[in-house]
Computed example of a mutant assay.
Amino acid sequence: MKVYYVYILKCSDGTYYTGFTSNLEKRYLEHKTGKHKESYTFSRRPLTLEFYAEFTDPNMAIATEKQIKKWSKAKKEALINNEFEKLPNLSKKIFNSK
C-alpha cells in the first residue's frame, strides 16, 4: 500500500512550510540541500522537520495539506506540539464590537 505524507518544516526565519509528498525522506533532503532554487524554503535554510502525518488516500493528504496551509502560525504550532485541544479555539475569529 502506498503512503503519502503531509509535512511541516520550520524555516530559519521562523516561518513554516507545509508540503505533500509520497517520499518524505527524499523530499526533506531536497529541501535541506536546496535542490529547487525557486522553492520557498531555498533561502530559508536550515530547515527542521517539525511534523508529518501519513495517509493512504492521496486525495485526503492533498486536502489536508491545503487546509493546513491556510492555518495561522499559532494553529500550526499547536498541531506540531500535539496540543489538539487548542485547535478549535485557534479557529474561532474574534470580533470587536464598537
Rank of each mutant, 00 (worst) to 15 (best):
V3S: 15
G14T: 05
A74E: 15
Y52M: 07
C11M: 13
E65D: 11
T48E: 14
R45E: 05
R27P: 07
H36W: 12
R27K: 11
N23A: 07
P88N: 04
C11E: 08
S22C: 14
E77D: 10
K70S: 15
P46H: 07
L29W: 02
N96P: 03
K32D: 06
F95D: 09
M60T: 08
E50C: 05
G14P: 02
S39E: 00
F42A: 06
Y17R: 00
K66V: 00
T64M: 11
Y40A: 05
K70M: 13
T15W: 04
F42I: 02
Y4R: 04
T48D: 13
A74I: 01
N89F: 10
Q67Y: 05
P88F: 02
N23Y: 08
K10D: 08
A61M: 11
L29T: 06
I62G: 07
E30T: 07
Y40R: 09
E83P: 05
N59M: 13
A63I: 00
I68E: 08
E77T: 01
G14A: 05
L24Y: 03
V3K: 15
Q67H: 09
K70Y: 00
K76F: 04
L90C: 07
K75L: 08
S39W: 03
R44W: 00
F55H: 03
T15Q: 13
I94K: 06
M1F: 09
Y28V: 13
F84K: 12
T64Q: 11
V6H: 09
I68P: 00
M60H: 10
K86L: 13
K93S: 12
E38Q: 10
S12Q: 05
Y17G: 04
S43P: 01
R45M: 02
R45V: 06
F95H: 12
N59G: 15
P88Y: 02
K75V: 01
K73I: 00
P46C: 10
L29Y: 05
L90M: 09
K66M: 08
S97A: 11
K70N: 14
Y7V: 00
H31A: 03
N89C: 04
K10T: 12
S97T: 12
K35S: 12
W71H: 11
I62F: 00
Y28Q: 12
A78S: 10
T41G: 01
A53N: 01
